[in-house]
């Protein structure tokens, strides 16, 4: 039997046998993730040699990293762009459209008010609203990346998603805060 070389450097999509696309089959991803972890997880190697244990740890770590990246739309978009040689400049490029920034400021004000008033219902509403925006951004991102291959526009969308993820995190923290 000829060994088939599995390249440790291969991209995350290929690792799971998925096409290089933003839109992905979540079921296939999960299924392939489990199949791969079943092969490489340290629990399967703990009685073997040190070299095999070390390799298994590296592989399992990589498979987890790949899975986390592909699961998150933000990380997936950013990663796909990096494969196309595009840096999303999330730290440096802060030139966002005015209407988007206005919306961000408004969201933050609503969040602050909800925290101040310990208003769980307001947080619930916000969460739903953010989810909706995130979904819209994802659909646009799929269009720009998979259909139009317009990576500059896609980069802008990733930066927007990053803002939305940050606010979603803050909503989560506010839930925790009100619950304590």
């Amino acid at each position: 039997m000829l060994p088939i070389s599995a390249d440790f450097q291969q991209d995350y999509f290929s690792l799971f046998g998925l096409p290089l696309r933003f839109q992905l089959d979540r079921n296939a991803l999960e299924q392939h993730y489990r199949t791969l972890q079943t092969q490489v997880h340290p629990d399967k190697f703990s009685h073997l040699s040190q070299s095999e244990q070390r390799l298994s740890m590296q592989w399992a770590t990589r498979v987890n990293e790949a899975y986390q990246t592909l699961c998150s739309p933000l990380a997936r978009g950013r990663y796909l762009l990096s494969l196309h040689g595009v840096d999303t400049q999330e730290e440096t490029n802060t030139a966002m459209p005015l209407d988007f920034l206005m919306e961000q400021m408004e969201l933050r004000e609503v969040l602050e008010a909800a925290r101040r008033n310990k208003d769980m219902a307001a947080l619930d509403n916000m969460e739903a609203r953010v989810k909706l925006t995130v979904n819209e951004l994802q659909q646009q991102l799929a269009l720009e990346l998979d259909e139009k291959q317009d990576y500059a526009t896609a980069s802008g969308l990733v930066r927007k998603l990053k803002f939305m993820e940050k606010i979603a995190e803050e909503i989560g923290a506010a839930f925790d805060e009100l619950d304590s």
Binding site: P3, I4, S5, A6, L15, G17, T35, L36, T38, Q39, V40, L48, S49, S51, E52, L55, S56, W59
Partner: peptide, 13 residues
């Protein structure tokens, strides 16, 4: 070990 791991991952793929 490296070769075996490669083979194993390839078979999963």
């Amino acid at each position: 070990a490296q070769k075996r791991m490669d083979q194993s991952v390839a078979s999963a793929l």
